[in-house]
Design a protein around this nucleic acid. Structure first.
Length: 334
DNA sequence: TCTGGGGTCCTGCCGCAC
DNA sequence: TCTGGTGCGGCAGGACCC
């Protein structure tokens, strides 16, 4: 979907259309939080996802700031996924506003299917999306991003050299800021230059798994199947305090509350978990975790809290605490 | 002075069992 | 009894995704 959260807000309040709009946090740009989505008008000011709201505010003080309304976006997302499943049941969900469809078995030109999907989504939700058509997920993902918004891009194997290789390495799924910087140091800025590297060199530099991945991805190779069903492996809750906290009572009370929520989520979804991890981020942004694995899986608030406090006790709380969180891993169905 | 929240996967290290 | 290789679970941290 194109600027999904912003587009949903503009759809339900047309006054916002055509204006710089920033969705993130509590919607108050003087408080802690980051940008979830910026409208295309806001992006012209240099505002982008993951940017601190306060920075966004400095870049464009007259932008409209709104809180994230996950309930509403999930509802719209559900409608979109329903449309997609109608066209093709082999669907892989990728978060709230993306999906892969394997349409290889459908006896109709891919472009025609894509156009019908775009029209149907527009009818059902009033929103535009961008679609990429390619022989695999890796290339389809890159293609979908090439003509945003409201785009439709087709990439074939023969296009890799001409259309993929000139792109910056950052366009590859799995290459983030760290790897980008690392590659830049090696003098590698485009996917094509990366593709010229021997596999040995990449494995030496990035390890076996990731090295191989980069070697194949830079050549447009991706054999990974669509994952149409998966089970959650962990569930968590965390919160950044509005102001850093040194009061142990406040930290403990917050952890207890988060623990209740995690236990609740597990019960609601019908899971039990074995490994409790407590995460603490200090005022200097240093982040640490402590984990405890239980002998028997649980989903009760009491047992989860006891384990969480065992973990919390193992922290030296010398610095002020910025964030506290708790995660239950090793989930299994009840 | 700033840097959310909910996830997944990988790596390196350690202790333990065999 | 000591040493070493190997496999594995647990743990901590890091990179990445939406």
């Amino acid at each position: 979907m194109d600027a999904f959260f912003a587009a949903v807000e503009q759809r339900r309040n047309p006054d916002l259309t055509g204006k710089p709009l920033v969705i993130g946090g509590s919607g108050d740009p003087t408080r802690r939080g980051v940008v979830s989505t910026a409208s295309y008008e806001a992006r012209k000011f240099g505002i982008h996802s993951a940017m601190p709201l306060r920075t966004a505010y400095k870049l464009c003080p007259h932008a409209i700031f709104l809180p994230v309304d996950y309930q509403e976006y999930s509802r719209v997302s559900g409608k979109i996924k329903d449309v997609l499943r109608e066209f093709c049941p082999i669907m892989q969900d990728v978060g709230i506003d993306e999906a892969f469809l394997d349409i290889s078995h459908i006896d109709k030109p891919a472009e025609a299917i894509a156009n019908e999907i775009k029209i149907k989504i527009k009818q059902e939700t009033g929103l535009t999306c961008s679609i990429g058509i390619a022989p695999n997920k890796l290339l389809a993902k890159i293609a979908s991003d090439m003509q945003k918004p409201d785009g439709l891009t087709i990439i074939t194997k023969n296009d890799i050299e001409r259309r993929i290789w000139p792109l910056p390495v950052r366009k590859l799924w799995g290459v983030g800021p760290k790897t980008e910087a690392h590659l830049k140091e090696m003098g590698i800025e485009t996917i094509g230059v990366l593709a010229a590297l021997p596999m040995d060199r990449l494995i030496e530099r990035f390890g076996n798994s990731y090295g191989r991945y980069l070697y194949e991805a830079s050549r447009g190779i991706d054999e990974s199947p669509l994952v149409t069903h998966w089970e959650p492996k962990s569930t968590s809750r965390e919160i950044t305090f509005e102001h850093d906290v040194s009061n142990w009572q406040v930290i403990a009370r917050t952890l207890a509350e988060l623990t209740r929520e995690v236990a609740n989520d597990m019960k609601q979804a019908g899971y039990k978990g074995r490994t409790v991890t407590v995460k603490v981020r200090f005022s200097d942004f240093e982040t640490h975790t402590r984990a405890k694995t239980l002998t028997v899986p649980t989903n009760t608030a009491d047992e989860t809290r006891t384990a969480a406090f065992d973990c919390l006790k193992r922290f030296e709380l010398k610095k002020k605490v910025r964030l506290i969180g708790v995660k239950m891993g090793g989930l299994e169905k009840v």
